[in-house]
Design a protein around this nucleic acid. Structure first.
Length: 600
DNA sequence: GCCGTTTTCGGCCCGACTGTTTTCAGTCG
């Protein structure tokens, strides 16, 4: 039993204890233990075998013994017994916003509700409002929560699909009868939310490819197993198609199945205007009708008296197809029919930023606040990834829930960073803070402290109201502070979980341009905030982007690559992204940035 | 269930918000 399985068992116990209404500190102890195990650099089995498992902070006698039992026997009777007390489907209810363990327990015990469907039914029959502690409003909110959950669960976050896409590509490439294979669809376009996966390959033996595809180990259900197209379902209801086409049609098919629909429609209209026809099966030159009249004898059987003749325009790559339409190559990320066709016609498609351009990142957390990796480990990981600098930005004191740093702890961390930097070569840790934006745009720390740091990320975490003007003014006020270098996750959205708080982004972007504040492209797969749809106009107003992983673990530093996808969707070039600057240049930029001269 | 310069019991992170209440419980971050 590996670490991640132990972590999920401990978290499962914590959830079940909450449902039971046990001492909340007991369930918290299990959550803490899960977190500690998740953070351990070593394998549990090694620690136990070498007798070094005792004495880890957060894991006492009780939980410690359970973990040992779990790791050595692969089973934990305590957990199995706990699970028997509630139907497994009851845990679904906790996914509904507004339903926590206490309410789930009451719903189950009083009304026998054990899954989302029965909860929805009870709401509609107004049986919820009568329960003690529940009212009409709660009933309405739960129903809204169910609708939200349902509408979101049909979609998947890009970042959550990266692994399975790579695994399936590797798997398909191992099959000798597959010549070319590519992921297409909205995943290839780098959309932050993806409904299903589309794969495309070429082969002379489609049947064998289809048989191989449906045997992919992650397949949970086969929906369709055809000759040239199959559909399967992975975990979490993720649907995935694979199509096989002849090798000579690959370019057209890849273009077609990459989309977007809107982009394809625009391309087809362009083709028609040029006397051509574009489909997934090819690009065809249509001959003029009068040149090829259909023979009279044939026309009697055919209501159409004229048959246009088609001749296929041979294209080996997508680039060839675009060229045949008089267009420069359009990268998949831009294919949203948002100006890319006009740009391609005028040869104005920019050279988009690539992840290899990134030289360092800001906004990373450590164990000092709510991160799960130490400062030392984060620095080491960043160096190993070939980055030149790593910005640390732990939470500020108002973020209690994230163990935000007090002034004293900020100064202590600053000293530690200076000390580490004195021993580092060709790499630098940058000292920063993710400073909470409080009511009325006040910052969580005084300017005196902020001035000491290399940079400041200002973020809104709590207390955002439903008043757009109020939220907007808070962000603006924060950006006007001369020590605020960048605005963190500007809209606060959590993809498929929480909508952005109401904020006038146009005003925020204008203020960023005016004050020279950088805007973050937070690359946490849950956030990807600011949205790609806003970047092009922000760029045109002179706003600089900073792609940050918002990493809470060494493994999350690499999230910046997902951020680069989004930056590309936002038409950003290397020169628009601040962290494409070398360590030398970033140091200079921070000297100006952190001490903005103009008072606002 | 964990922990200890408040040490073997008693506290454990804090505050906003909402909706339910008549002083507070549940949820969320």
């Amino acid at each position: 039993m590996d670490k991640s399985m132990v972590v999920s068992v401990l978290e499962g116990i914590a959830t079940l204890l909450e449902l039971k209404g046990e001492n909340p500190f007991k369930s918290r102890a299990y959550r803490t233990a899960a977190r500690v195990i998740d953070t351990l650099p070593e394998e549990l089995s090694d620690l136990i075998a070498q007798g070094r498992f005792k004495g880890i902070k957060g894991i006492g006698e009780g939980i410690g013994e359970k973990i040992i039992q779990l790791v050595t026997t692969g089973n934990l009777p305590y957990y199995e017994e706990l699970k028997k007390e509630f139907p497994p489907s009851l845990l679904e209810l906790l996914d509904i916003p507004g339903v926590g363990p206490k309410r789930a327990k009451v719903l189950y015990e009083e009304l026998g509700i054990k899954d989302i469907d029965s909860l929805e039914k009870a709401c509609k029959e107004h049986r919820i409002a009568g329960l003690a502690g529940f009212g009409q409003k709660t009933e309405e909110n739960i129903l809204l929560g169910i609708n939200q959950f349902r509408s979101f669960s049909a979609y998947h976050r890009y970042g959550d699909l990266v692994d399975i896409v790579e695994e399936l590509l590797d798997y398909l490439k191992k099959n000798p009868s597959i010549v070319h294979v590519h992921v297409a669809g909205s995943f290839r376009r780098g959309k932050e939310i993806v409904k299903d996966l589309d794969f495309l390959c070429t082969s002379k033996n489609p049947g064998a490819v289809m048989d191989y595809f449906v045997q992919f180990p992650q397949v949970r259900r086969i929906v369709n197993h055809g000759e040239t197209k199959s559909t399967v379902i992975f975990d979490k209801g993720l649907s995935c198609d694979l199509r096989v086409v002849p090798d000579e049609d690959y370019a057209y098919a890849l273009l077609h199945f990459t989309g977007s629909k809107e982009h394809n429609v625009a391309l087809r209209q362009r083709a028609i205007a040029q006397g051509k026809k574009l489909s997934e099966w090819g690009l065809f030159q249509l001959s003029k009708l009068e040149e090829k009249p259909v023979a009279e004898s044939e026309s009697e059987d055919n209501p159409q008296t004229m048959q246009p003749q088609e001749s296929k325009i041979f294209c080996r790559t997508e680039k060839d197809v675009y060229a045949a339409l008089g267009l420069a190559y359009i990268p998949p990320e831009l294919r949203e029919n948002m100006g890319e066709i006009e740009a391609a016609q005028n040869n104005e498609i920019p050279r988009l930023v690539e992840w290899e351009d990134i030289r360092g990142v800001f906004h990373c957390h450590t164990t000092e606040s709510d991160g799960r990796s130490s400062l030392e480990d984060m620095a080491k990981a960043a160096m190993e990834m070939g980055l030149e600098y790593l910005g640390i930005a732990d939470h500020s004191k108002s973020s209690f829930q994230a163990n935000g740093l007090s002034e004293e702890r900020v100064y202590a961390q600053l000293d530690k960073i200076k000390n580490m930097n004195s021993r580092l070569q060709n790499f630098r840790l940058l000292s920063g803070i993710e400073c909470d934006i409080l009511k009325e745009g006040k910052l969580d720390f005084s300017d005196t402290l902020l001035e000491e740091l290399d940079y400041v990320v200002a973020s809104l975490h709590a207390g955002f109201s439903n008043d757009e003007e109020d939220n907007t003014q808070r962000l603006i006020k924060a950006m006007e502070n001369p020590y605020v270098t960048m605005l963190g996750h500007p809209t606060g959205r959590l993809l498929l979980v929480r909508k952005p708080y109401p904020v006038n982004m146009e005003k925020v972007i204008d203020c960023a341009a005016k004050t020279g504040t950088w805007i973050e492209l937070n690359a946490q797969p849950m956030r990807l905030d600011m949205d790609w749809r806003l970047w092009k106009s922000a760029r045109d107003k002179g706003v600089k982007c900073v792609i940050n992983p918002d990493a809470h673990h060494v493994k999350e530093i690499g999230y910046y690559k997902i951020g680069v996808n989004i930056a590309r969707k936002g038409w950003l070039r290397k020169e628009d992204v601040i962290n494409c600057l070398s360590l030398n240049d970033i140091t200079k930029a921070l000297q100006i940035k952190g001490r903005k001269k103009t008072p606002f």
